[in-house]
Design a protein around this nucleic acid. Structure first.
Lengths: 160, 160
DNA sequence: CGCCTCATGTAACTTTATAACATCACGCGG
DNA sequence: CCGCGTGATGTTATAAAGTTACATGAGGCG
């Protein structure tokens, strides 16, 4: 189980590497990694937290990259559909994927104090959820798993 | 692991029993189970599926029980806060709880074809999610776990 | 060139949710 | 019985999130 999100890290290189990886994957898959899409992903990577569509749109507008909601939503749809970003349902917000391209069954740990979001992986068809589904005769195609609580930093800060 | 939702059952008695159980619990806990709150819970129980706040509001309006959004949202807040209903984040909709009052860690199985929702229970601090949280030093206070897929009926109906 | 496909630009709108403030009903101490 | 506090409700307005619809543009390909 691999978790990324609450540890310090070299952020500028993480952005660069991620963009490069997505770029490569898009070429391979015949997807168009256009300026707006790239910029949206960069914004998400820079913040390293979940951003609302309208927060992203505000940035795009400042940069002259589009000013109407569909611009942001279309770019986000592209990123989410292709596994380069995720939507956090609990927050109505979006976050860059930390494992772009890998087979995906993301799990999120959301700090309620500082809004940091860590992404981890699991296999939803296994474990308790998988068991519940099998008991009910249900076939899981997709799972939203979002835990809310306190990250290590905020626990120490006493954000009880 | 206990799952309710995809099997046929005696619906009118399930509504009645559930209302009675909630009524009792409210008395015990000193909570006011007012007409609007009761009616909203009844509506949710009758439908036995996730309803949007505005769908509920429409019903209330027809019945003269209030016509403005806050009326529905306040009743829903009350029900959710006290564990008598749940919000399905994925659908921005609400559903009656099938285990009112019990200690709660609900898991939902949502059919994408017929919108039926089954509720099951699990212990979020265990299993893969719990492990991921421990690895990250994260303390889980609440978890949204919503699986999307096909219920047994819709699998048979060939809703591929 | 003409046509198709996919991406973008833009206006208008729908759906979901909350803020703010007035009013009402009930219980409880004086 | 009154006055007051608390919690519920009524109502207006507005914010936040997301979509529809239609026009335009940029590349690929026969």
């Amino acid at each position: 189980m691999d978790t990324i999100g609450f540890e310090p890290h070299d952020h500028s290189s993480c952005i660069h590497d991620c963009i490069a990886a997505v770029d490569t994957q898009c070429r391979t898959a015949g997807l168009q990694f256009t300026p707006v899409r790239r910029r949206v992903l960069e914004i998400l990577l820079q913040e390293h937290r979940a951003l609302g569509a309208y927060e992203i749109l505000d940035r795009l507008r400042e940069e002259g990259l589009g000013s109407q909601p569909p611009v942001a939503y279309r770019a986000l749809d592209f990123l989410v559909k292709n596994g380069f970003a995720h939507k956090i349902e609990r927050l109505n917000a979006f976050i860059a994927c930390t494992h772009p391209g890998e087979h995906h069954a993301p799990v999120f740990l959301i700090c309620r104090a500082c809004d940091a979001v860590a992404e981890s992986q699991r296999e939803p068809t296994q474990g308790q959820l998988g068991q519940a589904a099998r008991d009910a005769g249900f076939v899981i195609e997709r799972a939203v798993i979002e835990a809310e609580g306190l990250c290590p930093k905020c626990q120490q800060a006493g954000a009880a």
